[in-house]
C-alpha cells in the first residue's frame, strides 16, 4: 500500500487561485505544475526575488534565500520566496513580486526603466 500524504491547499490571495501542494515541491513549483500563474516565476532558485510572497496563514519551512531580496526583517514578517517555501499546512500567500502585471499594457509594451525619480522598481532595492 503506497504511503499517501495528504496534500495541503495553497491559496494565492491576489488572484484567488488555489492549488494543492506536492510532497517535496516548493510552493512555486507546485503552482507551476498546477498551471496557475498568480506568483511571478523568475529564477526558481532563491536568487532573484521575483516570486516573493507574504504568507498570510499556515506553517512552512524555507530553504536558503538571497539576502539581497529577502532581509531578516522580511523573513520575520513572513515575506519569503515561493520557490524556497515548503508548506507544512494549508497556506495563504499574497504575491509581492515586482513582475506581477497582466493585461494589455504588458502585452504590447514594456517599461524600460529609464532612471526617473518615480522609478517603479525601487522596491527591489529596499
Amino acid at each position: 500500500m503506497p504511503h499517501l500524504i495528504t496534500p495541503h491547499l495553497i491559496t494565492i490571495e491576489n488572484s484567488g487561485e488555489r492549488f494543492q501542494s506536492v510532497d517535496g515541491m516548493s510552493v512555486l513549483a507546485a503552482m507551476e505544475q498546477a498551471r496557475c500563474r498568480g506568483i511571478p516565476v523568475g529564477c526558481r532558485n532563491g536568487g532573484c526575488g521575483a516570486c516573493k510572497v507574504r504568507v498570510t496563514s499556515g506553517q512552512y519551512r524555507t530553504g536558503k534565500m538571497s539576502r539581497a531580496v529577502v532581509s531578516v526583517a522580511d523573513e520575520a514578517q513572513g515575506c519569503v520566496l515561493a520557490c524556497k517555501t515548503y508548506p507544512q499546512s494549508d497556506l495563504g500567500v499574497e504575491a509581492l513580486g515586482r513582475i506581477l502585471q497582466t493585461g494589455p499594457s504588458r502585452a504590447t509594451s514594456f517599461s524600460f526603466a529609464i532612471p526617473r525619480p518615480e522609478s517603479p522598481r525601487s522596491e527591489r532595492e529596499a
Binding site: P40, G42, C43, G47, C48, A50, I99, R121
Partner: peptide, 21 residues
C-alpha cells in the same frame, strides 16, 4: 527590442528585464 533580444519570439520574455541577481 523584442527581436533584438529574442529574434524568433520577437518579444522579451517576462524575466529578461526583471530577473537578475
Amino acid at each position: 527590442l523584442g527581436p533584438a533580444i529574442f529574434y524568433h519570439d520577437r518579444k522579451i520574455n517576462e524575466s529578461f528585464l526583471s530577473v537578475f541577481t
